[in-house]
């Protein structure tokens, strides 16, 4: 187990370093970062001065070293310094961190809503296989996986905010503001968790120990809740973790639809305004969180099912 933990930690560190390399190259692929960062009407002298000031005239490996470890007043990304936001003129990482709680809140509520919808639906579909419950949930999950979530968001706004006037259209001022964005963001997670829950339950319900429990005369609810659910849940834990990781970095579209002030909303705005230090800081932070959540899920999984660490 210890060897497995160390191996996973090392793998995560390598991935994090590679993420920083990608973030660094995001600007370099243009061939001329100064041309991208400076206003279109800048003179050649302005551009040359900007290149010198920012160190863009240095060889690539020197630039990468400065990017990581800092240069002059910049402390480098390894110490969380991604430079200043061009638009807001505050440290880019600080700005991203300010928007992080809204994203985390949205992702967590979305996962909770999907669990509340998907787990009972998955269990019922498996227990009453080929019944109308099973058919309805299967069709629902098929539609859920095919529906663009930003379209679902717009439709929820039309129904619940514009027509029925039950919920607000967008913003972030009270608990009722999170319901529509969380339903939208949790769409894929609900469909996916439901399918995994169903197939796992079907597998476990066919195993010998469940048959033994049935032959002892236990009632079906007790068999499902006490015996089957526990073992069927292990793969579901992984999926939930993966979905949470995806949601932390993937609520961008939902945030844009509902003007939810999270990291995604901030980054889309930064991309549209060419505020690249903010984009770099956001991509790095979201990637770090994804790696962190995945590491936690893998370790949790190995703890729940020790066979994993020996594979």
């Amino acid at each position: 187990m210890r060897a497995y933990v160390i191996r996973r930690l090392l793998q995560s560190l390598i991935v994090l370093k590679a993420v920083l390399l990608i973030v660094f190259f995001m600007l370099q692929i243009t061939g001329d970062p100064a041309g991208v960062l400076m206003p279109i009407d800048s003179t050649q002298e302005d551009l040359a001065k900007f290149r010198r000031d920012m160190g863009f005239d240095q060889p690539m490996h020197v630039q990468y070293y400065h990017f990581l470890f800092g240069r002059e007043r910049n402390k480098g990304v390894l110490r969380g310094d991604f430079g200043f936001s061009f638009r807001h003129e505050v440290p880019a990482m600080g700005l991203v961190l300010e928007h992080l709680p809204a994203t985390v809140q949205l992702a967590v509520v979305a996962v909770v809503i999907s669990l509340v919808l998907a787990i009972p639906a998955g269990i019922l579909s498996a227990t009453f296989r080929n019944s109308w419950i099973d058919h309805v949930s299967s069709v629902g999950s098929m539609f859920g996986q095919s529906m663009p979530n930003f379209w679902l968001g717009l439709m929820l706004i039309i129904i619940f905010a514009v027509k029925l006037r039950w919920l607000p259209t967008s913003g972030y001022e009270g608990p009722e503001y999170i319901i529509l964005p969380a339903l939208t963001a949790g769409l894929y997670a609900t469909a996916r968790i439901m399918r995994v829950m169903r197939s796992q339950m079907l597998e476990v319900l066919g195993l010998d120990y469940v048959r033994t429990a049935r032959s002892k005369g236990l009632n079906e609810t007790l068999i499902v809740v006490r015996h089957a659910l526990k073992n069927a849940s292990i793969p579901v834990v992984t999926i939930v973790g993966i979905e949470l990781g995806i949601l932390l970095g993937g609520t961008v579209v939902t945030e844009a639809v509902f003007a939810w002030p999270g990291v995604g909303f901030l980054t889309v705005d930064a991309i549209n305004n060419q505020d690249y230090p903010v984009v770099q800081a956001a991509v790095a932070l979201l990637a770090f969180m994804f790696v962190g959540v995945n590491l936690a899920v893998d370790l949790l999984y190995a703890w729940l099912d020790p066979r994993i660490s020996y594979k």
């Binding site: 793998q11 390598i14 991935v15 994090l16 590679a18 993420v19 990608i22 995001m26 600007l27 692929i29 243009t30 991208v36 970095g249 993937g250 961008v252 579209v253 995604g264 980054t267 889309v268 991309i271 549209n272 060419q274 984009v279 956001a282 991509v283 979201l286 990637a287 994804f290 790696v291 995945n294």
Partner: peptide, 23 residues
């Protein structure tokens, strides 16, 4: 495999948006 892990970690829509905005 490490390249795959890295690409998985980078938020897809933001990466694609950023690239299209730059290119």
């Amino acid at each position: 495999s490490r390249v795959i892990d890295t690409m998985l970690a980078v938020p897809f829509i933001l990466l694609a948006m950023g690239l299209v905005a730059i290119l």
